[in-house]
Amino acid sequence: MDRRDFVLAGSLAAAASLRWLRQGGLFAFADIAQAPEPSSAPLQEANGVFAAIVRAVLPFDDARFAAITPIQVETRANESFSLDKDPSIQRNLALFGDLTQFATPPAWVSQAELALYPAEDDERSGPSLVPARESADAKAFQTASARWPSGTTSFAALPLAAQRAYLGLWARSALGTRRRFYQAMKTLVMSAAYSMDQTWPVIGYDGPLLHVRPS
């Protein structure tokens, strides 16, 4: 096995995210016959969705972060994690990118929620039923999206601030599967970016010490 393959297999922080996405991610409980096919129009936009996620997650709007470009991060993420070649990941990105699906998530999301995120005795967020969680998300979306350009149905088309707010809805979603997707994307993007040597001087990290390996 080539040394490079180790890196392709995924980083410690990213491996769990990748594995979940490849095994279905948001679609893990979906009847795949009902899920969009990899050839359908929304899926062709999946690469655009990931490009937009990279730009929203990383601080390219801070001049100090100019050491790398969004394209470099995208390329590294795709090389390291094969995001652009995996139909399951593409499907996940397309679902995330379609704003019209947020307020009323597909039925399999509720199934995943029931199976993996059961109500807990000490849950403080009120009635811990899945419909209550879904309506909490719908309400949060309604509040946030009121400030976005009207008629926008795609994440990639939102302005940067709105994209970050939308990611925030996923980060703090009442639905566990959505929080997991957010964590997965954040982990993949951060792993790709901060494993690039060029980002290290920006944050004051001197990198590996191996040049002083004693004989």
Partner: peptide, 28 residues
């Protein structure tokens, strides 16, 4: 051992991808 986070993940069980079922806690 090259002191790089990404490369050295292969020293970990399932290359670091092992987590609790919800993905909430890595089990390294």
């Amino acid at each position: 051992f090259d002191q790089r986070e990404l490369d050295m993940s292969l020293l970990y069980a399932d290359r670091g991808s092992r987590t609790t079922v919800e993905g909430a806690i890595p089990v390294q």
